[in-house]
């Protein structure tokens, strides 16, 4: 037991169910997410993996007519408590989306956006945050001379790393990634994966992916979802080597999905 206690839980869900209007998207999900690890969430399209990810920072509430039952604890507090400050949660839990979504502002202002709204006005400090975040996202060397250029002029891969840097700039605890490389070419994908590998030293990362090779390459834990249910969650190496369930075996061997 002693070895298990060493790894801290960031998130845990108990009996999490979610409905879009009358359609159930998540069914009684019980999951644990561990600190400073990469957790991959895999499963066929429409299995609820993106929905699950969006419950973790309550972005799912932007959708109309949703109903949520069950419990999600983040660092021991119930997220769906009425009084839970949702802005603070999203500030601690950053998100990188499927398609890069930089603001139509300069590179500098994209990164400085979050810190500025948190009240940081000191120019020196902002400069430092921008530089540090861009370095963490391995983008600094490519953009250091054009920080005032419109972010939309960057390439797709650069934009995605910019979005990552933007989320790092507010100093998060957890980073959620929703198929962050699905719109990128193999070279840009490799760069993002390399970053995920480095960032897990400091952050807990949850990545939704439809690419099983990617899950194998980057993650420590893998959770397999099917039709809104969590089929199994284990260490990545074990899950891919010896899946417990037939559905998991079928999916990872490419028999459906």
């Amino acid at each position: 037991m002693q070895t298990l206690v060493d790894v801290k839980e960031v998130y845990s869900t108990e009996g999490l169910s979610l409905w879009y209007d009358k359609k159930q998207a998540l069914k009684d999900v019980n999951v644990s997410i561990f600190e400073k690890q990469v957790t991959a969430i895999i499963g066929p399209s429409g299995c609820g993996k993106s929905t699950f990810l969006k419950t973790l920072n309550r972005m799912v509430e932007l959708e109309p007519k949703i109903t949520i039952k069950g419990r999600i604890s983040y660092r021991g507090n119930n997220l769906y408590d009425k009084h839970y400050p949702v802005e603070q949660l999203r500030h601690r839990v950053g998100m990188v989306f499927q398609k890069a979504n930089p603001f139509p502002k300069s590179i500098y202002n994209n990164i400085a956006f979050g810190p500025r709204l948190r009240g940081i006005k000191n120019k020196q400090l902002l400069n430092e945050i921008v530089e540090r975040s861009l370095k963490q996202a391995a983008l600094w060397d490519e953009v250091r001379d054009k920080l005032n250029q419109d972010a939309n002029r960057l390439s797709g891969g650069q934009q995605q790393r910019l979005c990552l840097a933007r989320c790092l700039a507010v100093d998060p605890d957890v980073i959620l990634m929703d198929e962050p490389t699905s719109a990128l070419d193999p070279i840009a994908t490799a760069k993002v994966e390399e970053l995920v590998h480095q960032l897990k030293q400091q952050y807990s990362i949850i990545i939704v992916t439809h690419n099983m090779e990617q899950a194998k390459r980057v993650s420590d834990q893998t959770a397999f979802f099917l039709n809104g249910e969590l089929i199994e969650q284990r260490k990545t190496s074990e899950l891919f080597a010896k899946p417990f369930h037939k559905e998991t075996a079928d999916y990872i061997s490419g028999r459906f999905g």
Binding site: L62, F97, K99, N101, F103, P104, F113, L117, R166
Partner: peptide, 27 residues
């Protein structure tokens, strides 16, 4: 204004009014 911009701002923990003022209205 693309929904993605709103999501980006909310995702950073920016409140609704600041999102409107700093992201949506300029766009």
């Amino acid at each position: 204004v693309p929904v993605a911009l709103k999501e980006a701002s909310f995702g950073l923990g920016v409140g609704q009014w600041y999102t409107i003022k700093n992201v949506l209205l300029p766009a």
